[in-house]
Amino acid sequence: MYNFNYQKATSRDDAISARSSADDGSYLAGGMTLIPTLKQRLAKPSDVIDLAAIDDLAGITDDGGAITIGAMTTHAAVANSDVVASKIPALAALAGHIGDPQVRNRGTIGGSIANNDPAADYPAGCVGLNATIITNKREISADDFFTDLFETVLEDGELITAVSFPVADKAAYAKFPNPASRYAIVGVMVAQTGGETRAAVTGASQSGVYRAADIEAALGDGLDAAAAKAVKVSADGLNSDIHASAEYRAHLISIMASRAATAAG
């Protein structure tokens, strides 16, 4: 690891000002991705600005028709939240199957979506559930937020403060995990909210999370699992690596969508 200046921000404003005055600053949330990246010398920030001491960035609030989750809320907190379990159980289940217990104790929703790993679970959760990402500057629809592999619309220094999830009528997430890392080889969030059916796919595409229009059309209003399973997904643009070929991932998309639809009932 290259050395850096470490700063523990005490407030949102403190974090934003530390980041803007740094040559090449990086926010540190749970560190479950950033620290391994630093250890591999894949990143060389001049300053690491730790967000953990900012009290009002963590926590889960029930807004009636939506749940708002603070950016620094850990996966374990989401997985074990009674509010999330009762309002959007699919989201609690998704969080409860990220990585392993120790990763879930440290990793955060804000850190996960800012990183936008193409095999992470939360991007599919956000897009599938039609979440809104709230930053210090604006509110961004999940559809617009994730742009490409490890890329989002976040501007330099822009800080995610919370993510708001509308309460879905029906939703479930199905993941075919890598057996070692528990990252998604393919994961699909199927959700129906206010008459709209969504199927968001992670782990598969070369450009990260996306909505699968063919699967959504097959699922229809009734979340038809058999119809989703019958969709022949094209392997074009899908990722191929030592874990799975593009063709295998294409096959898994319809299978995972079908399982999610069955679970969503």
Binding site: Y6, K8, L28, G31, M32, I35, P36, V48, D50, A52, A76, P101, Q102, V103, N105, R106
Partner: peptide, 20 residues
């Protein structure tokens, strides 16, 4: 794995400064 404020965590992926 160690405990930080009672919760298990992987100490190879935490900076000492983070647990001040």
């Amino acid at each position: 794995v160690v405990h930080v404020n009672g919760e298990s965590a992987k100490s190879c992926t935490i900076l000492a400064m983070q647990v001040e």
